[in-house]
Design a protein around this nucleic acid. Structure first.
Length: 486
RNA sequence: GGUUCCGUCGUCUAGUGGUCCAGGACGUCUGGUUCUCAUCCAGAAAAUCGCGGGUUCGACUCCCGCCGGAAUCACCA
């Protein structure tokens, strides 16, 4: 198998959001698929000092780690091709640019921004496309610090192959004298990524389709630099839920870590995002990471944009919660829920929290629902007789009748051995004895004990709650009903 | 405006000339699982395959035109 080196090269301008994580996931998957022959590099493109956000790099690292995406080379990991921050590679780019000047393929540009702006305006007014190469100065000075360096374009028709988009073509009119080195001495993305990808041995350049229009310029650069072109992989956009536009921060694209706080599992996130715009041709929906790595393929990446659908992500999260519980057990799932329990749960033993988790897990879509779903297991609920009296199954019964039913239930349950099976037997006997429908008796007991809109199966709820506490709550509710009567 | 890309159920998608009056999943609706909310199971509705022409015995699949949408045209990445 041939070597595969991919990279994710974010700029530290903020958090990673839903719309752009995929350009980290896909290259990671592809590199891992190659096993020993694969390498995934993380490179920080911090050449824009104006947009630089302190702490953004940590945010990026944190997000990738959470998703389970590890890098073979890059910040923290190190590697033989470092440094991995572009600002620390400043002199490398400058050397390459100077070499190009010497060969007459680039030039120092003394033109001030105002003049450039004027050219642009004039061309716009004349309704001709603005191309800087039409305004190329005749005599260019020796380069000195503080002066940008421009590439001397070699405009001609360009054909290339894109692993996702297929065979592509562009005419000379899109090729221009792009800036290689800015006046602050740092390179532009256009130049830096080409040098870095080459030096780092990248075999694939995976990035969003927004770079597709500038690819002809890159092609020209590869050519004059004498660099073998890596495979180009253009990833279609992830679209806003409400339209066809690409999802960006401006449209409220949530950061990936925001979902961590909501209790979305990284497994589900990775699964959902990978399958948004990619599938293996089968009807499978749920893929663990190792399977994603094994099955991922460039040629099955969709070439049109995909609408982001949070509902499906949440569905998938529910699937993953259940999958982890049934396949790996409570303990594994419990470890993932640690940050989500209500405060009151901390007064209880871990074993108890696990018991609670075992009976409510299949109702969870997001882990953040844990507190509202489980609070009555940890603190006594407020007794609210209205909830019983207005219940659709119970409102035809009188308060007296309800109190009597509770009284009888308390008596029977007091003599019951507290296991789920025996509790169920008792409940069944109660049904027979009272002649009530399950909808009536069970609803009554369930509400009396939880005052929650819903709960797990009654026998399990009682079992986990414990005998003393169940009976105490039943009594309290019964008394409240009786007080109401007087 | 120039350039380029894209176009199958509401959404994500399968489909590479006949097995497709188009399959799966999410969502929606209905029913079932001794109470609730979910889960799970069963079922339903939902795509004249953007439109119009060709090619062909036959097209969602190939060709042309049109329309629609998007991206991009920075000393940002």
């Amino acid at each position: 198998m041939s070597k595969i080196v991919t990279r994710f090269a974010p700029s530290p301008t903020g958090y990673i959001h839903i719309g752009n994580v995929r350009s980290a996931i896909y290259p990671y998957l592809l590199a891992k698929q190659a096993g020993e022959n694969g390498k995934f590099i993380l490179r920080i493109e911090d050449t824009d000092q104006a947009r630089y956000v302190a702490g953004a790099t940590d945010l990026i690292l944190d997000t990738l780690k959470w998703l389970g995406i590890s890098w073979d080379e890059g910040p923290e990991a190190g590697g033989e091709n470092g440094p991995y921050f572009q600002t620390e590679r400043k002199s490398i780019y400058l050397d390459w640019a100077k070499k190009l000047i010497k060969q007459g393929k680039a030039y120092a540009d003394p033109t001030d921004p105002e003049t450039i702006e004027k050219y642009r305006k004039e061309d716009n007014e004349k309704k001709i496309p603005y191309l800087y190469r039409n305004h190329r100065p005749d005599n260019t000075p020796e380069w000195q610090e503080g002066m940008p360096i421009r590439f001397k374009a070699d405009p001609k028709p360009r054909d290339w192959h894109d692993e996702v988009m297929g065979d592509l073509h562009a005419g000379p009119e899109v090729q221009d004298d792009i800036i290689l080195i800015k006046k602050d001495g740092l390179p532009t993305y256009n130049f830096a990524h080409i040098i870095d990808d080459y030096l780092m041995g990248c075999t694939h350049v995976m990035r969003g389709v927004e770079y597709l229009p500038s690819t002809p310029n890159y092609l020209a650069l590869y050519e004059t630099l004498g660099i073998e072109m890596p495979k180009i992989v253009s990833l279609p956009h992830i679209l806003r839920p409400d339209g066809r536009k690409k999802l960006g921060k401006r449209d409220g694209a949530k950061s990936v870590t925001e979902y961590r706080e909501d209790g979305v599992l990284p497994e589900a996130m990775l699964n959902y995002l990978t399958c948004l715009g990619w599938n293996d041709g089968t009807e499978q929906e749920i893929y663990p990471k190792d399977e994603l790595i094994k099955k991922f393929s460039l040629d099955r990446i969709q070439n049109s944009g995909a609408r982001y659908d949070e509902t499906k992500l949440l569905w998938m999260n529910g699937q993953w919660i259940r999958k982890i519980f049934t396949e790996e057990g409570v303990d594994v799932l419990y470890q993932k829920t640690l940050d989500f329990w209500p405060e009151s749960a901390m007064n209880y033993k871990e074993e108890y929290r696990k018991e609670v988790l075992s009976i409510i897990y299949d109702r969870l879509k997001e882990l953040s629902e844990l507190p509202s779903m489980t609070s009555y297991f940890f603190e006594d609920p407020n007794i609210n007789p209205e909830m019983i009296l207005n219940n659709k199954f119970l409102k035809k019964l009188s308060e007296q009748e309800l109190a009597d039913l509770l009284k009888l239930s308390i008596e029977k349950l007091s003599d019951t051995e507290w296991t789920e099976d025996v509790i169920q037997d008792t409940l069944n006997q109660l049904l027979e004895q009272t002649g009530k429908k399950p909808a009536e008796l069970f609803s009554l007991i369930r509400i009396a004990v939880s005052f929650a809109p819903f709960s797990p199966a009654l026998n399990l709820t009682l079992k986990v709650l414990g005998k003393d506490r169940s009976l105490a709550r039943l009594n309290a509710t019964k008394n409240a009903l009786i007080n109401d009567l007087q």
